[in-house]
Amino acid sequence: MPKFACKCGETLGFGDIPNPIEWLFISDSDFDAISGLVDSESLYCKMNSFLECPSCKRLWIFWNGFDADPLEYVLQKNEQS
């Protein structure tokens, strides 16, 4: 099963189906270009994936598929005055 280590030390796997830490998304423009009956497999192929680390809540977004490294997005903590 493919996996990698989050910067917090948690191991993130992206081979499970269904995957409880994987989210799929599509741009509004790409979605709007779809019309008529939709084949779920072709829609799935147009989507990008991100993994949410269950420990630190970082998002690891695979903008270019699973063959390329994901980009890391980190929550910004609010500073208390």
Rank of each mutant, 00 (worst) to 15 (best):
G36E: 11
W63R: 02
N19L: 05
D69L: 13
S29A: 14
L59K: 00
P20R: 06
C45S: 10
F31I: 02
W23I: 08
E52K: 01
S42T: 15
L51G: 01
D39C: 14
P2M: 12
I17N: 11
S55V: 02
G65Q: 12
G65L: 07
E10C: 15
P70N: 09
N64W: 03
E52G: 00
C45G: 09
G9A: 05
E52A: 01
D28T: 05
S42Q: 15
G15S: 06
F4E: 02
P2E: 15
A33H: 03
F31H: 07
L24G: 05
I61M: 06
I17V: 07
D28I: 01
E41T: 12
D39I: 10
E52P: 01
D67Y: 05
I34A: 07
A33S: 07
D67W: 04
S29N: 12
C56G: 00
K46L: 06
K7G: 12
F50Y: 02
F4W: 05
E72W: 10
I61E: 04
S40P: 00
E10F: 13
I34P: 04
S27A: 12
S27G: 14
C8R: 13
F62I: 00
P18L: 10
D39F: 07
D30S: 06
F62Y: 03
F50M: 00
F25S: 14
G15P: 00
F25L: 12
N78I: 07
G65H: 12
N64E: 05
W23R: 07
P20E: 09
S81Y: 10
G9W: 03
D67M: 01
C6F: 14
W23H: 11
A68H: 11
F14M: 04
S35T: 15
D39R: 10
A5K: 07
N78S: 12
S55Q: 03
F62M: 00
L59Q: 00
